[in-house]
């Protein structure tokens, strides 16, 4: 396969596609499909025939050999994968995707291609249909901003930086030990100054009548925080 030039690959692919649509493939069809002159087609067909990839009957029909069919299919597969990636996943419109798929396909290392293929498979076989992050990405492309559920920087930070247990998860009466604070700098400094430092013991004292904020005991005094602030404080439960 590596020995074939780009245009040779395009020819094999073209013959395959035309062959799938029509019963027979003529030199004229190939020239039309690839938008080249007839003599060029004839010359290339001769080259390919020499490599034993196509058979060219005297009355003008072109046919792929077994080896030619195998190679053409593989090229076509690559093309489809790339097109899929560009069009279905990234959401690029089909004309551009088709054109770019043609351009990229010759240059990619098979390994890269394999990973892209696996990536597509992984996404497409997601049991919940299109994964949330992909929808979010499409939303991002369309609207130029993140959808609400992933718009908050803190949320991402929280998920990345800490485990799931934060102060807002504790129940009234439960005690915890502060592990880390992952809030925006001003809020963080305020919390630190108020004595919410790593290692300090806190206890959830009560929740306000409307469900927010909460009241915690820390260093012997009452401090009230919104659940949002509390969710930036990672804790471990202590019995």
């Amino acid at each position: 396969m590596n020995t074939l030039t780009e245009s040779a690959q395009d020819y094999l692919e073209a013959i395959l596609i035309i062959g799938e649509k029509k019963k027979v493939v003529r030199v004229r069809d190939i020239a039309k499909h690839l938008e080249v002159k007839m003599p060029s087609v004839v010359a290339m067909i001769k080259t390919l025939a020499k490599k034993n990839l196509v058979r060219h009957e005297y009355y003008g029909y072109v046919e792929l050999t077994e080896e030619g069919l195998r190679q053409a299919k593989s090229i076509y597969e690559r093309h489809k994968i790339l097109f899929n990636f560009l069009h279905n996943l990234l959401g690029i419109n089909s004309n551009i995707a088709k054109e770019d798929a043609c351009k990229i396909e010759h240059y990619l290392n098979p390994k890269t291609l394999e990973y892209i293929l696996k990536f597509i498979q992984f996404v497409e076989t997601c049991p919940e249909g299109e994964p949330l992050w992909l929808s979010s990405f499409h939303y991002f492309i369309k609207h130029g901003k993140r959808p609400e559920h992933c718009a908050k920087k803190e949320k991402i930070e929280k998920e990345v930086k800490m485990g799931p247990l934060t102060l807002n998860n504790l129940k009234v009466g439960q005690k915890g030990r502060v592990i880390k604070i992952a809030a925006e700098s001003q809020i963080k400094r305020r919390l630190l100054d108020m004595g919410i430092v790593p290692g300090v013991e806190v206890k959830i004292e009560k929740v306000a009548p409307l469900g927010d904020p909460i009241d915690i005991l820390v260093k012997g005094y009452h401090l009230s925080l919104r659940k949002k602030e509390a969710s930036s404080i990672a804790v471990e439960v202590i019995k």
């Binding site: 809030a183 009241d215 009230s224």
Partner: peptide, 10 residues
């Protein structure tokens, strides 16, 4: 803009 509530209950 976000403004936190971090307030002592004296």
């Amino acid at each position: 803009e976000v403004a936190p509530l971090i307030m002592e209950l004296p």
